[in-house]
Computed example of a mutant assay.
Amino acid sequence: MAIESMTGFARAAGTAGIHGWAWEIRSVNGRGLDLRVRVPPGLELLAEAARKRLSGAFSRGTLHVNLAVTSDAGPPRPRINEAVLVALLEAVRKLPGAAGIAPPTYDGLLGIRGVVDYAEEAQDALAALEKPALAGLEAAADALKDARAGEGRALETIIRGHLATIARLTGEAEAHPARSNDAIRARIAAQVEALLGASGGLDPQRLHQEAALIAVRADIREEIDRLHAHVTALRELLDTGGPIGRKLDFLSQEFGREASTLCAKANDPGLSRIGLELRTVVDQMREQVQNVE
């Protein structure tokens, strides 16, 4: 299964009788799945259908979903339900004055569901729109899936390229001459000799013990082993595919920690350069990983 990006755009449009309709879906990065659906009044069922369809197709991303409807017959004729409006006014009038509620205004009352509806013929035309608009929703969802999959393929190529660079740099750090026993021994001996020359009161045996401890703490064997393990784990995740963005992000953080520790432990300019390159590539990879579903 391939990976998918969280970004994409899709549009589907059509007509039904006197009405034209158009779905537009814009998808951007998100920590989870956030569906923001807008439909015209009277088509709330389509909003619920959109939420159900898209929540079944996607697991992450912020999706802005909009249904636009046009009509050759002009705007629908509103009708005020006077009985409901009078009942609301009477209910507000009976409230005690201590309630602290401002007097009702018509613009506020007209915004309450049920106070304003539309002419029956307009409602019938909207009802006839539901079936073709639902089909359009399916087409838009499929198109968005394809768009996110296409960008996912491009992301996978970039991430695998960064991963190959990380593997190469890890191998260079592992094989660096500064990690050889002779190099470490010579470096420690030079440091001990310099300290002894600076002060004749230092205990040579104690100095050698401290130098050995420093050498152990400065060894980057564990960091190299973990970097190799993370490279293998991330490649396996990419091979598995699916909604793996959170796991990829976690592994990217682990890469960053190991690269930072390698830099801190590096006791040679060459190793420091490799560590800095590792950190740069890891940061670049994580930027791409955060786009993955």
Results as ranks from 00 to 15, higher is better:
257 R>D: 06
23 W>Q: 04
59 S>A: 14
174 E>L: 12
197 G>Q: 15
174 E>Q: 13
256 G>T: 04
63 L>H: 06
70 T>S: 14
247 K>R: 15
61 G>S: 03
141 A>S: 13
200 G>L: 09
56 G>R: 08
34 D>E: 14
14 G>W: 10
95 L>G: 01
199 S>F: 11
4 E>G: 13
91 A>M: 03
170 T>S: 12
60 R>Q: 08
81 N>A: 12
281 V>G: 10
265 K>P: 02
105 T>K: 13
166 I>Q: 11
178 A>H: 07
268 D>Y: 04
153 R>K: 15
180 S>M: 04
90 E>A: 15
46 L>A: 07
43 L>Q: 04
80 I>K: 09
237 L>Y: 06
34 D>G: 03
103 P>R: 15
246 R>N: 05
73 A>G: 12
56 G>S: 11
126 L>T: 01
8 G>H: 05
145 K>F: 13
44 E>T: 11
48 E>L: 14
223 E>K: 05
76 P>Y: 11
66 N>Y: 13
237 L>E: 06
95 L>V: 13
173 A>T: 03
128 A>P: 01
79 R>E: 15
128 A>K: 14
219 D>A: 13
202 L>N: 08
182 D>V: 12
194 A>H: 11
189 A>H: 05
152 G>K: 06
99 A>T: 11
115 V>E: 07
288 Q>N: 09
291 N>K: 09
186 A>G: 09
62 T>F: 06
24 E>T: 14
6 M>P: 02
44 E>I: 10
26 R>C: 00
262 L>Q: 04
264 A>M: 02
259 A>K: 04
103 P>Y: 09
180 S>W: 09
204 P>M: 00
156 E>N: 08
196 L>I: 05
87 A>E: 15
